[in-house]
Design a protein around this nucleic acid. Sequence first.
RNA 1: CUGGCCGUGGCGCAGUUUGGUAGCGCACCGCGUUUGGGACGCGGGGGUCGUGAGUUCAAAUCUCACCGGCCAGACCA
Length: 470
Amino acid sequence: MAKAPVLTPQSEDFPRWYQDILAKAELADNGPVRGTMVIRPYGYSLWERMQAEVDQRIKAAGAENAYFPLFIPQSYLTREAEHVEGFSPELAVVTHAGGKELEEPVVVRPTSETVIGEYMSKWVQSHRDLPLLLNQWANVVRWELRTRIFLRTSEFLWQEGHTAHATEADASAYALQILHDVYRAFMVDVLAIPVLIGRKTRQERFAGAINTLACEAMMRDGKALQMGTSHELGQNFAKVFDISFQDTSGEQQTAWTTSWGVSTRMMGGLIMCHGDDTGLRVPPRLAATQVVVMVIKDGDGAGEAAARLVSELQAAGVRAKLDGRTDTSFGRRSIDWELKGVPVRVEVGPRDLANGEVTIVRRDLAEKRQVPIAEVGHRVEMLLELIQSDLLAEASERRDTNTFDVSTIEEAREAAQQGFARIPWATLGEEGEAKLAEDAITVRCLQSADGQVPASETESGVVAVVARAY
RNA sequence: CUGGCCGUGGCGCAGUUUGGUAGCGCACCGCGUUUGGGACGCGGGGGUCGUGAGUUCAAAUCUCACCGGCCAGACCA
């Protein structure tokens, strides 16, 4: 009795699978305006967990949250030449408001370097005011041609950090610190997504930056997704917004700034890195609901036993939830929780209950096990840890087996059809990069021989990781 | 913007070739029986057929324009 699959299988049509899961796991819908999205409560609960975890790490890195306006005077954007050039094609500009045409149009922020630069300039007078470490959680708008929910939408949610430093070395070190201690740590430890870190080529650099660092992940279809970026802005913005200070010897100096961000795109990464043909698989540390305790059927004491388990788990600090919707069939509810990717299910029914047991199910492996009721708390906690590390291990292995060391551009092109190709940057170069671009293959990042972020692209042993990307 | 496919109840589709006034599955509502992997029976509700114009006695169906979606290309978190 083979039922129709719940989702279009990944192997059959990956983009379709992605669309299916967005709808069936109740993650998000398209918004009424082209390219916008509505994030549904379950999807938003995952985003809120991401925010909480990232926010905590940002604060640990010393930055403080603030909020800057959605509207930016158009003139601000035009001050930094590369910045305008990079962003002007995707700006949403307000020309009319209050029933009148505005004297100066305002743009809806595509990113906030400019407004924040203007205020940093006011706030920074002395070397004692540095470093100035700011962050904001906000929405931004970039009018995109081809959009996909979470991966590229005209409006998205993100966190953007903006800092000013007294020296280039300090700014550079901070941009790297954010990449390591905030982004990579969060992605690996919480999202269970193994990410490569590296620097971007000139071609891929942020508009107005002197250096862009990034975290890159491999999705289940072998394509790359940029999960986060951290930019060294040099003195480009500090000069045009006059962020300057008096140093210890009384000299006037120009500051060095950075900016860095992660967005709701990480939701797409989560889905495409861990999701399988039965739905999402949420790593336990991220999961808004880690355990669902299901009452199989009413009237046999299961309801009471399940409620008791939920409170015990909650008391132990587990994010547990009761599913007592016994007016819906058990099979239907199981499938719903699998779609949503809740890591562990505890099934409470008369058969097991008669033996003082319940059934525990791992979402990631679809593995069921009978466990004495008294051991549930302990077993669940162990399982959550195990699932977290297994998801990371599985994703790492998939990435590694789909990463190929190559020595020619032709081989790189070939390998990128399946996954990542690693090719010496000295071999590829900007000409090779342009050549690969004809086949929609891009340099995701440059790494030093040991997998770290190279100090410069000319450093010896630098490897370009190339792939098709979202 | 370029090329291909496609817009019909919430979702997925048939109906379009050969114009005749809209149907199926799932979902939804009610009642009952069910509940250890998408339950079943009976009874219901819901659609300006993407939008506009045109041809016609008559348009989901034919013509034109526009809008939107998906996939593949140029840009980006």
